[in-house]
Design a binder for these strands. Structure first.
Lengths: 99, 99
DNA sequence: TAAACATATGAACATATTTTCATATATAAT
DNA sequence: ATTATATATGAAAATATGTTCATATGTTTA
């Protein structure tokens, strides 16, 4: 009934996932990807009116958390949401935060 | 199809909610409250082997995010999870992060 | 009323995160 | 080959977050 080492680790992993989501710019990125499908880095940067570099740094965080995956086409790199589960968590958070 | 001001605000609110959750100690607090029901501050501090002050600061963040509510009984203050929706979001995050 | 207990809070410090700037890497076009 | 385009990355600067320490506030007990 206490926090076992296993629970501890699972919660730590969950905290890491949540931390990757817990930033407006990153939520917006995932939102755009969920709504519009895959997007190039520049396209995201334009839509969010941010520096290419800043976006790239944020995309790295999403990548490392496996929230997005990429593929290259020519010199562009396209990002897409890894799976719908992520979108589901965000939708829940949006609903709860705005109820 | 872009991010409207309304969407912008909703995502900002969601990011704030997620940020309140995105820290191991805070997840553990909510976990304990969800499993064991309401707990006093000292009891939480003991179980998590943390300073009373540090826990209080973290509890304030959870309170401000309306993730927990309190009531006083004598000189103790008992915390409990605001609603099951929160627990649901965390459970989802735990599952996704550990799959 | 004074002492003890439970919790909260402000300020200083330590640590982590985000942005910016310069530059590196990879691909395509000339 | 050289130049242009798209993206990534390291380091410094700017900002935010968490912890600690001292102390304040509210409540009970002696």
């Amino acid at each position: 009934m206490n926090i076992t080492p296993t629970t501890h680790e699972k919660l730590a992993a969950a905290a890491e996932l949540l931390a990757a989501l817990a930033y407006p710019v990153r939520l917006k990125i995932i939102w755009l990807l969920a709504e519009q499908g895959q997007q190039s880095v520049n396209h995201l940067a334009e839509q969010l009116a941010m520096d290419q570099s800043a976006i790239s740094h944020q995309l790295r965080i999403l990548r490392q958390a496996k929230l997005v995956i990429t593929h290259r086409d020519g010199r562009q790199i396209f990002y897409q949401v890894t799976d719908q589960h992520v979108v589901h968590i965000i939708r829940d958070a949006v609903l709860h935060a705005n109820e």
